[in-house]
C-alpha cells in the first residue's frame, strides 16, 4: 500500500470525446521540455524522442470506417513497472505520485523502457544538436539530455515546482487549475485537464468520476494517474 506523504496527487483526465488529434500538445511538450529534434533517419529506426504521442486507430472498413485518437504520455503509474527494474534508482516515485527520472543517475540500461507497457520512455540513442541560433530557444528550466540517457514526461515538473514555491511564499496550498502542463495549457478543445486527484473537489477529480472513465491497460494493475474518458460515437447520441 502506498502511504500519502503529500497533500498532492497529480493526475490528468483525457477526454477522448473532445480530443480531435490536432497535435498541438505534441509540439507544446517538445517546446517546453527541450525535446530533441529528430530527423527522418532517426524516426525510421523507431527512435523518435516525443514524450507525448497521439496514437491513431482505424476502426472498421470503408465506408463504415472511423479514426480514433489516443494521446499517450507517461501514465505516472502508482505501481510503475519501470521503477523496480532500475539498478541505479534513476526511475523513482516522488511523494506527489509522480514517476520521476533523474537524468544524471541514468546509466542507460533501458530496463525501464523495456518494462513500460505504454512505451512512453524514450532513449537518447544519439547526441542531438540545435544548430545556432536554434539553441536560443532551449528553455533554461530544463536540462538538455545527452546520449545514453532515458527521458520521459514529467507532468512538467518545473511548473509544479514553481507553483509550489509561489504557494509556499504566500503560505497557502496550490489552487485548482494553477498548474497546467504545457500540453493541457495549449489543448484547443480542453481535452486534457490536470490537477490534484487527492482533492475530491478539483476539476480533475470530478471528471475522473465520470461514467465514461477508463484507464489505459487497466488489467495490468499499474494504477495510472491518468484517466481517460471514452470517446463518443453513434451509440452516445
Amino acid at each position: 500500500m502506498e502511504t500519502m506523504t503529500s497533500q498532492y496527487r497529480w493526475g490528468m483526465v483525457v477526454d477522448l470525446d473532445r480530443c480531435t488529434g490536432c497535435g498541438a500538445c505534441v509540439v507544446a511538450c517538445q517546446a517546453e521540455n527541450n525535446v530533441a529534434i529528430c530527423g527522418k533517419k532517426e524516426i525510421s529506426e523507431g527512435r523518435n524522442m516525443h514524450w507525448l504521442r497521439i496514437e491513431r486507430f482505424w476502426v472498421g472498413q470503408y465506408p463504415d470506417v472511423r479514426a480514433r485518437f489516443l494521446p499517450v504520455l507517461c501514465q505516472h503509474c502508482h505501481d510503475a513497472p519501470c521503477e523496480p527494474v532500475c539498478p541505479v534508482y534513476a526511475s523513482y516515485h516522488n511523494p506527489d505520485g509522480l514517476n520521476g527520472q533523474v537524468y544524471n543517475r541514468c546509466v542507460g540500461t533501458r530496463y525501464c523502457g523495456n518494462n513500460c507497457p505504454y512505451a512512453v520512455r524514450v532513449f537518447n540513442f544519439y547526441n542531438h544538436e540545435w544548430p545556432n541560433p536554434l539553441d536560443n530557444q532551449l528553455s533554461p528550466d530544463m536540462t538538455v539530455r545527452t546520449r545514453g540517457v532515458m527521458e520521459k514526461c514529467t507532468f512538467c515538473i518545473q511548473r509544479i515546482r514553481r507553483a509550489k514555491e509561489d504557494a509556499k511564499s504566500e503560505n497557502r496550498t496550490i489552487r485548482d487549475g494553477e498548474i497546467q502542463p504545457a500540453c493541457a495549457q495549449t489543448c484547443p478543445t480542453d481535452a486534457l485537464v490536470f490537477g490534484n486527484m487527492a482533492d475530491p473537489r478539483s476539476r480533475v477529480a470530478i471528471l475522473s468520476r465520470s461514467p465514461r472513465r477508463f484507464r489505459l491497460l487497466e488489467h495490468l494493475g499499474t494504477h495510472p494517474s491518468i484517466c481517460y474518458l471514452k470517446g463518443g460515437g453513434r451509440e452516445h447520441v
Partner: peptide, 8 residues
Amino acid sequence: GKLCARGQ
C-alpha cells in the same frame, strides 16, 4: 489561451 501546433 489556446494555441495550435503551427502557432507554437
